[in-house]
Amino acid sequence: MKRREAREKAVQTLFQLDRTEMSIDEAITYIIESPIDPFYERLVKGTVNHKEEIDKTLEDKLEHWSLERLPKIERTVLRLAVYELLFEDEIPHSVVLNEAVELCKRFGDEKSGRFVNGVLSKFEQK
């Protein structure tokens, strides 16, 4: 599985997990069959396991918005991207931004891509 596809599947999985009682493993097997791609699994589990820290970091970057007010797709893409920015050191900042915008184009709309890019551009580049 290529990394872009892993990110797309991760967004779908995280989207399902947002405000549901489904377990991580249930959501993963709902979206993808075995064998599970290690990068995909790391994205999903890492984002879920670090959600509190990711959300706090995001709240500090959002201006005039709260995470609760964001549309679900933007919130999901932002959480995934912030996980990558904070915990996936080998992935360049520019790649994370570009992939997040592409995910918004695929699952959201043009406005969501611009919004997500604006929020993520406030993070320091590595």
Rank of each mutant, 00 (worst) to 15 (best):
R114H: 05
T47N: 02
T57I: 10
K2L: 14
G108S: 12
L97G: 08
H64P: 05
S34N: 07
K105Y: 09
I28N: 15
C104A: 04
H64R: 13
H93G: 01
L85S: 08
Y40F: 15
T20M: 09
L78T: 00
D89T: 04
I32G: 07
Q12A: 08
V96I: 11
W65V: 04
E88V: 13
E68Y: 11
E53G: 00
Q125F: 06
R69M: 05
L70Y: 05
E74N: 07
R19N: 15
Q125I: 10
K122S: 03
E59Q: 09
R42T: 13
K2F: 15
L97R: 10
V95L: 11
D55A: 04
K111T: 00
V116M: 03
L67G: 10
K45E: 01
L17A: 09
E52R: 04
F123G: 04
T13F: 11
L85A: 10
K122G: 02
E33P: 14
T29D: 15
I91P: 02
E33Q: 13
E21G: 04
S34A: 13
L70M: 05
L62F: 07
P92R: 15
G108T: 08
R106M: 03
L85Y: 09
F115W: 06
D109I: 04
K51F: 09
R3P: 05
K61H: 09
Y30F: 14
T29K: 14
N49W: 09
V77C: 08
G108A: 05
N98A: 15
E8Q: 12
I24N: 00
H50N: 07
K61W: 10
P92Y: 12
T20Y: 10
Y40N: 09
E90Q: 15
K2I: 14
F15L: 06
E110T: 14
R3A: 14
Q16P: 10
A81I: 00
H50R: 08
L86K: 07
I54E: 03
D18C: 02
V48Y: 08
E26D: 13
Y30K: 15
G113V: 07
K45L: 07
E53I: 08
K51A: 12
G46P: 00
L14S: 01
E88P: 01
H93A: 04
